[in-house]
Design a binder for these strands. Structure first.
Lengths: 200, 200
DNA sequence: CGAAAATTTGACATGACTCAACTGGAGTGG
DNA sequence: CCACTCCAGTTGAGTCATGTCAAATTTTCG
C-alpha cells in the first residue's frame, strides 16, 4: 500500500482540530486506519448497488454525489472539494447497497476510513465519536437550509445564493451539474446565467 | 418540579433501546437530567430569537417546527409526534438565537434535556453520544430523501408520498401546515386532495 | 350563536420545463 | 496540425404545473 503523503495528514489533522484535540498518540493511531487513494477524472468512488464501506476525506479534487431518479435523471446531492467529507452515510451504517454514485469531476486524492474501523476508533478515541457527530450535525443543518431554500426561493434566487456561497464551484463544476444540484433544468440555468451577466 | 410519570419514562426507555442498551443505573442517572413538561395547544416550545437550550422528546401530542421566510411565509421543517425528538440543533449547539418556532398543534407532554446536561451525559455515558449520533444521522438521511423528493417529484407525487408515509399526520395536522411542509400552496393541496378523493 | 380561521373553488398569470435546433469548444485520430 | 466528432451550452417557441388573488363556503372555538 502506498504511503500517505505528509500534506494529506496535515490537512486532515487541521480539519479534526476544528472540533477536537487529539494527542499525538491518538492521531498516530488514527492514521494507521487511513488509506490513501488517488483517482482520475471520471472515475467512480462509489456506484449504486455497492455497499459504501468507507467514509472519504477529500485532500484534493472535486467530486459529486448523485442519485438517478425514476425518470433516469441525475440529482446531485452534494459536491465535495478539499477538506470535505463524502460517502453514503445510510449505506455506510446499514451496510445496505447505496443508491448513489460518487464521481470524480477532477483527478482526486482522498483518505478513506473503513466502517469497521470507525466502530473501533470510536471506542478507542471517544473524541472521534464527537467529531463525527458534529460533522453529521453540521451536514444536517446545511441540508435543512437547502431544503428551506428550495421550498421558498425561485430558481433565480437559488442560483444567486449558490454563486455567493460557492464561487469556486461555479468555476470548477460543469453547468449541468450545478443545475442538477439546484434542482433546475440546465437550459434554465443557462438563461439565469445570461441574465446575471447582463446585470453586471 | 413535577414528577415524571412512569409511562413517560417507559416511552423514552423504549426509544433508547432501539439503539443502545443502558444499565438501570445509567438510565436512572439519565432520568435525573430530564424535565417533564406539559403544554397546551397553540403554545410555543421555542420562538425565533430565543436560544434553544433543550432537546425535546415528545411523549404525547403533535408539534411543528417552522421558519418564517423573507416574504413572511411559514415553512414547516418537520412535525414531531409521539416518540420523536425535536429542537433546533443549530441553536442548541452554537447557543446562537434560533430562527425557528416550535408550536404545539395539540396539547403535548414532553421530556426535555438541557444542552449543558447533554455534555455531561455524553461524558458519563458514552453510549448516549452514540445514540444521539445515530439520531442525527437518521435525521440527515431523512432530510436527504426529502430534498431529492422535492427536487425530482411533482406536487402530486409528493402529496401521495406523504399520505403513504404519514397517514396519521394527514388526519391530525391542518391542511395548510401539510402544504407548507410539502412546499406547495394550500390551494394546490386542496385540489390534490379533491382529485385523490375522486380516484378512490 | 357568531366571529375568525380554514378550506374550497374559480379565473387567471407565470416561472420553469420540454423539445428541438444551433453554436462552440475540447478531445481524438489520421 | 487539421478535420471530425461529440458533448456542453445557448437560444427560441410552446406548454403546463403550480402559484396568486379573490370570493364563497365550511369549520372551529370562544
Amino acid at each position: 500500500m502506498q504511503n500517505i503523503p505528509i500534506y494529506a495528514l496535515q490537512a486532515i489533522q487541521k480539519t479534526l482540530e476544528r472540533h477536537i484535540r487529539l494527542t499525538d498518540q491518538e492521531f498516530e493511531f488514527l492514521t494507521q486506519h487511513l488509506t490513501w487513494r488517488k483517482l482520475r477524472k471520471r472515475q467512480f468512488l462509489l456506484q449504486a448497488g455497492e455497499v459504501c464501506r468507507y467514509n472519504f476525506y477529500v485532500v484534493k479534487g472535486c467530486l459529486r454525489m448523485y442519485e438517478i431518479d425514476e425518470t433516469g435523471r441525475e440529482r446531485v446531492l452534494h459536491f465535495a472539494t478539499e477538506n470535505w467529507w463524502t460517502g453514503d452515510l445510510y449505506s455506510f451504517l446499514t451496510q445496505m447497497p447505496t443508491s448513489f454514485h460518487i464521481e470524480c469531476m477532477e483527478d482526486a486524492e482522498l483518505l478513506q476510513i473503513e466502517q469497521q474501523c470507525m466502530e473501533n476508533l470510536y471506542t478507542q478515541i471517544p473524541k472521534l465519536e464527537r467529531f463525527f457527530r458534529i460533522l453529521v450535525q453540521n451536514s444536517l443543518i446545511a441540508t435543512h437550509r437547502r431544503l428551506i431554500s428550495i421550498m421558498s426561493r425561485s430558481a433565480t434566487e437559488r442560483y444567486y445564493e449558490f454563486i455567493e456561497k460557492y464561487p469556486d464551484l461555479e468555476q470548477r463544476v460543469a453547468n449541468h451539474h450545478i443545475a442538477s444540484y439546484l434542482g433546475i433544468a440546465p437550459e434554465s440555468l443557462s438563461r439565469l446565467r445570461k441574465e446575471y451577466m447582463n446585470k453586471k
